[in-house]
């Protein structure tokens, strides 16, 4: 399933992630999952939230570079080899996973992986 993800550019220094979360809190946005890809000096915060567009607008007006991007949420069965079979399908279609993380699930349902691809249409077709 195609879902919206929030991507925010952030300097890798103390306090900056707090400011992002503060901004989201003030906008009444609930974070479902948050993850950080970092380099020594900066990083990208990626989050799945309940109100993506509002969150992006709030962050932009707080002075951040925030972007809403389409990613795939793929349910993976809770057994050995399940992720492999998803990845194999992507790989067979010549699709490269740009990045991936797990979506936090409150109940004991199957895990859901958030996956980013350059060509999301093709990925949706292959994994959909």
């Amino acid at each position: 399933m195609r879902i919206k993800q929030l991507s925010v550019f952030l300097e890798n220094t103390p306090g900056h992630l707090c400011k992002v979360c503060q901004t989201l809190k003030s906008a009444g946005v609930n974070i479902l999952t948050i993850t950080i890809a970092e380099t020594k000096e900066y990083g990208i915060v990626r989050a799945v939230v309940d109100k993506t567009e509002e969150a992006a607008a709030a962050l932009k007006s707080a002075g951040f570079f925030a972007k809403v991007v389409d990613v795939l949420a793929v349910e993976v069965e809770d057994r050995p080899g399940a992720l492999l079979s998803v990845l194999a399908r992507a790989s067979d279609s010549g699709l490269n996973v740009e990045y991936m993380y797990a979506l936090t699930r409150p109940n004991n349902e199957n895990p859901v992986m958030v996956m980013a691809f350059k060509d999301i249409d093709a990925a949706e077709k292959a994994l959909g």
């Binding site: 991507s7 550019f9 380099t39 990208i44 990626r46 570079f65 972007k67 991007v69």
Partner: peptide
Amino acid sequence: ELLEKYFADSLPQLD
């Protein structure tokens, strides 16, 4: 500073 329209959701691209 980057120009906003060039902020991509990709570390390799930023690099």
